[in-house]
C-alpha cells in the first residue's frame, strides 16, 4: 500500500495524446529515475500527477498509498503528500520565501491551528543551513531574479519543509552548473529515507551520478519501455536511446 502507483495512465493535451498507457510503481523508501528523450512525455507525467489543469486524463489511475488522487484539486494532492519540484519554478513578485513556505506549511495544519512563528523560523533556518542557503534568502521574493541554481535550491528547501510522502523532481538538473548540481543533489540525498519515495525525471545520466537511483525506467512515446537497475543509466549514456525503442 505504501506506494505511488501509476496504472495504465492515458492523458492528453487538447486532442494530442501524450501518455499512452503508462504504468509505474514507486515504493516508499526508494528513488526511481525516469529517463527519456525530449518529447517522450516525462514532464507531462509530472504535471498530470500534480493535477495541472491543461491536461486531460482519459483513462487509468494514480494511487497515493492506495487512494486515487486524479479527482482531487492540485492543492489537495499536495496536502496529501505529493510534491513536485518544478523544472521551471514560477516567480511570485512581492511574496517572500518565508511567507510563501509559511502559507504552505500552514495549509497542512488542522483548521484553527496557527503555525507558531518562532518554531517555524527555527525550522526553516536549520533546513537552510543544511542546504547552504544564506538566511537572507527568506526575505527575497519567490524565485524573482534567482539564478538557476538558487531556484532549484529553493525547490529543495520547500521539499525539506513540506516533508512529502512522494516527491517528483522534474529535470532538477536543467540549468545547473556542476557545483550547483552537487549542492542540489546532496540536498536531495539528505532527504532520502524510508518515509519518502522519489521519482527523478532527467534527460541526462549526469544527475544520477549524484542521486543514485534504486531503479531506472526509460520512457518513450508516453510509456515505460524498459526498466532496470542503475547501470541502465550508464548504458543509455554511452549508447543512446535508439536501441531501447528499436528492440
Amino acid at each position: 500500500m505504501s506506494t505511488l502507483s501509476i496504472c495504465n495512465l492515458h492523458a492528453s493535451i487538447g486532442d494530442k495524446p501524450i501518455l499512452r498507457g503508462l504504468t509505474l510503481e514507486i515504493p516508499k523508501g526508494q528513488v526511481h529515475a525516469i529517463m527519456g528523450k525530449n518529447g517522450s512525455g516525462k514532464s507531462t507525467l509530472a504535471k498530470v500527477m500534480a493535477g495541472h489543469p491543461d491536461y486531460t486524463v482519459n483513462s487509468g489511475d494514480v494511487l497515493l498509498d492506495g487512494e486515487s488522487i486524479l479527482g482531487m484539486e492540485p492543492d489537495q494532492r499536495a496536502r496529501l503528500g505529493l510534491f513536485l519540484a518544478f523544472q521551471y519554478p514560477m516567480e511570485i513578485p512581492g511574496v517572500t520565501i518565508a511567507n510563501f513556505i509559511r502559507a504552505a506549511v500552514q495549509s497542512r495544519l488542522p483548521q484553527g491551528e496557527e503555525l507558531e512563528a518562532t518554531d517555524y523560523y527555527a525550522e526553516i533556518y536549520s533546513k537552510m543551513d543544511a542546504l547552504s542557503i544564506p538566511r537572507s534568502f527568506t526575505s527575497r521574493s519567490v524565485n524573482e531574479g534567482f539564478s538557476g541554481g538558487e531556484k532549484k535550491r529553493c525547490e529543495i528547501l520547500q521539499m525539506a519543509m513540506l516533508q512529502p510522502k512522494y516527491a517528483v523532481l522534474d529535470e532538477t538538473d536543467s540549468g545547473l552548473d556542476i557545483d550547483a548540481l552537487k549542492i542540489v543533489s546532496s540536498g536531495v540525498n539528505s532527504l532520502r529515507g524510508p518515509e519518502v519515495g522519489m521519482l527523478v525525471i532527467t534527460h541526462y545520466q549526469r544527475l544520477l551520478d549524484y542521486i543514485v537511483p534504486d531503479k531506472v525506467h526509460v520512457m518513450a512515446e508516453g510509456q515505460i519501455v524498459l526498466s532496470g537497475e542503475k547501470d541502465l543509466a550508464l548504458k543509455l549514456e554511452s549508447e543512446g536511446y535508439d536501441w531501447v525503442t528499436a528492440s
Partner: peptide, 21 residues
C-alpha cells in the same frame, strides 16, 4: 498551479499573489 502544488487552495494562492502585488 505552482502555489496550489505547495498546498494552498486556489483562493489562498490568488490572495497571496494579490498581497504580493
Amino acid at each position: 498551479f505552482y502555489m496550489q502544488q505547495r498546498g494552498l487552495s486556489e483562493a489562498a494562492a490568488m490572495s497571496l499573489a494579490v498581497n504580493g502585488f
